[in-house]
Design a protein around this nucleic acid. Structure first.
Lengths: 149, 149
DNA sequence: CTACTTGCAAATGCTTTGCAGGAGA
DNA sequence: TCTCCTGCAAAGCATTTGCAAGTAG
């Protein structure tokens, strides 16, 4: 299932929060809208700075709640700053381009063949140590346009 | 180039540090040895706890120096804890299995075919936004043996 | 000798939490 | 109304830095 950005997204968010006994309050909605608007993984600081209605503590708390509910996802770059984006099953599976110079992250959709190869490999994987893979995370590291100049 | 774990490793470390005007002191050597011994990405806290000769501040400082010299690499899991391992070109290219439950990370070498597909994709990539990819990072997310019990 | 390293302790900065007031159902 | 949510300010923690003493070359 894959939803366009719109009313559906908020309906799903409401439902997922309800599953974990949480409400989709206006503050949380603002948070999700800010993430959608960004269109790429953003840091907590960026979120707080983007809207006056997003105080630090509440933002952190709500990101945690939304992450637990499966509405948003934590994304890792090369630095230690936490970045968030709307969950993949709401926006589509994709990967990230991570700038090794400034740490910025942008979205990226790989060729279907690459994706297929990865999915196959992950699906079969179960190591001797008992690790069972469920998903994959592929990031391309390099230099972004701004840093290359 | 790929070096076995042994004297060569220290020789390379010495050389790489020298390139950035740094010395391969006994303290830094202990750090590298601790990383080799671990055989998987370990947190700073684990390193500090593993050897009495590794105080916090020096460990952090030396990891930064060794990272800059290209002797060690920072690895990201799912939590915000920094983990480190000996640089790939000294131990061999590999990927990571990340436990979504406890955050533990172990090494993993994918089938050659997967690796080849990835390398090809990365080699060709240059997006409209001007991003130029240089390397890839593939992690498999799942549940480790301990957490599955 | 001279510059780089070390280690302690204090500082920094991102993130989390206590608590009193406010809002949702 | 009763519980969950919010926001401020204070606390927590991983990480970084100042500084005086130690050490490599």
């Amino acid at each position: 299932m894959l939803f366009a950005v719109g009313e559906d997204l908020h309906a799903v968010a409401t439902a997922r929060l309800r599953r974990v006994d949480q409400r989709y309050t206006s503050g949380r909605r603002v948070l999700v809208e800010a993430l959608v608007e960004a269109g790429r993984p953003v840091t907590t600081a960026e979120l707080v700075a983007s809207r006056r209605e997003l105080p630090q503590s509440t933002t952190y708390r709500n990101l945690a709640v939304l992450e637990q509910a499966g509405v948003v996802r934590r994304v890792l770059g090369t630095d230690e700053l936490a970045r968030f984006e709307v969950a993949e099953d709401l926006t589509g599976h994709h990967h990230h381009l991570v700038c090794v110079s400034c740490g910025a992250v942008e979205d990226f959709e790989p060729p279907r063949r690459v994706e297929q190869t990865l999915a196959d490999a992950v699906g079969r994987l179960r190591t001797r140590t008992g690790f069972r893979a469920e998903a994959h995370r592929l990031d391309l590291l390099g230099t972004c346009g701004s840093c290359a100049e």
